[in-house]
Structure formats: C-alpha cells, structure tokens
C-alpha cells in the first residue's frame, strides 16, 4: 500500500492527526511541509509508520503508544514526551526536554538534543547521537539515557533510577548523580542500544555510567542538603 500523503499546507493539525489515527495497523503516512507545525502525530496508538518530511515544532510524537515516527528535520521542545510504546526518530537536532516523562518506547535523536533531555524519564529509552544540554536526566525515574557526545552542566540532577551513559565528556554532575563503574551488563546494554540506533561512533566499552547516589531519597535533616 502506498503511503498516505498529508500536506500541512492544506490540512490543519487536527485533520492530520485524525487521518493518522484512522489508519489501520501496518499503514504508512508521509506528512509533508510541516514548517514547524506543533503536535503532529500525537496520541496515536495504532501500529503505523509516519514520516514527517521537514522541521517540526513542539511535542512531536507525544503521548503515543504504537507508531514509528521519523522526522526528517529538526524538532522543537519535548519530542516524544510521555511516549508509551513505539519509536520516534529525529534525523536532525531536538530542542529542550526531548523524551520528557517517556514511560516506554524509544526516542532516537541523530543530531544533538538540547537542555533537559530525558527529564522525568519513566522507563522510556532516549538515545542521542550527539550532545545533550544542561540538566539532562533531571529527576529521571527509570529507563535509559544514552548520549553519544558530550553532556552539559548538572547531568542527572536529582536522579532516581534512570541510568545515563555518556560517550563524550560531562561538563558537571547534578546533585545526587555519581559516576559508577561500567559492568559487563552495561557494555552489552550500550552495544544493543547503539546498534539499534545505528550509532557506530559509540564504543560500548568506553562510556561513562551515571546513576543516582540515592542520597536524596530521604529528607535527612543532618545531611546538609539544600532543600
């Protein structure tokens, strides 16, 4: 079956999402000329493939539980936010809060992601080929954030159980984040994820593992913490 063509210059966001939501499993769609349009391919739970051909805006692929979405361009804030299942792949850069609160599924960013990538992550997988900005992994609860390039300031601040792997340098760690020894399991995990994303530049045995020191798990009066 040929892909369904949806042209943003002709259709409203509502018409595009309604058309995508109505497709049967296995169908494919091409969203043309997005021109920074927000909220494309959100809230979908059908197993379709969506190719967004150009730069798109905020919340692309947000609240999805099923489709595979590819963006041939840059995306704005909070791509794949609250993702449950399926994948979102961005061929360009992603702006702030990429993969925010994703509960499942996989977000792949082939370029850089900006600040707060993987914020509040709840079990999803966020794979960034390039760099991530400051406060990435903030309050991330579960799941994995893999960074092929460098990480900005305050990486993993107030981290819960998400594990962060960084291929390049780390500008600084946030409160309660610490570097831990890489285990064989970690190396296997990173290899599997890098292979899946097609990130050949990542050497799985040569990444830094960042996880929670778990010192903020309890309000300890005498720990000298800054509440």
């Amino acid at each position: 079956m040929d892909p369904v063509i949806l042209d943003c210059t002709q259709l409203s966001t509502r018409e595009i999402n309604a058309a995508l939501g109505g497709l049967p499993d296995g169908a494919a769609a091409r969203v043309m000329a997005p021109w920074g349009r927000h909220n494309l391919a959100v809230g979908l739970d059908n197993r379709i493939t969506v190719r967004i051909e150009g730069n798109a805006g905020y919340f692309i692929g947000g609240l999805c539980a099923g489709p595979d979405v590819v963006v041939d361009g840059f995306v704005g804030w909070s791509v794949a936010e609250n993702l449950m299942r399926g994948t979102v792949r961005v061929r360009g850069n992603a702006s702030e809060c990429a993969g925010a609160s994703a509960h499942g599924g996989t977000l792949i960013v082939e370029g850089d992601a900006s600040s707060r990538a993987g914020i509040s992550l709840k079990g999803g997988t966020v794979l960034v080929a390039g760099d991530v900005g400051h406060m990435s992994g903030f309050m991330a609860q579960a799941g994995i954030l893999l960074v092929g390039g460098d990480a900005g300031q305050a990486l993993g601040d107030s981290l819960y159980e998400t594990v962060i792997y960084v291929g390049g340098s780390i500008a600084s760690l946030g409160s309660d984040a610490r570097v831990e020894d890489l285990t064989d399991d970690d190396v296997l995990t990173v290899k599997r994820l890098a292979d899946r994303a097609g990130f050949e530049h990542i050497d799985p045995g040569n990444v830094t593992r960042v996880a929670s020191a778990r010192e903020l798990y309890h309000f300890d009066a005498l720990a000298g913490q800054r509440y």
Partner: peptide
C-alpha cells in the same frame, strides 16, 4: 547569525 524562539522561524 540568526536567533529565534523556535527553529522553524529560521528554516
């Protein structure tokens, strides 16, 4: 040099 709140303004 171009600056914008969102990338699409630069596109």
């Amino acid at each position: 040099v171009a600056v914008a709140s969102e990338y699409h303004a630069l596109a």
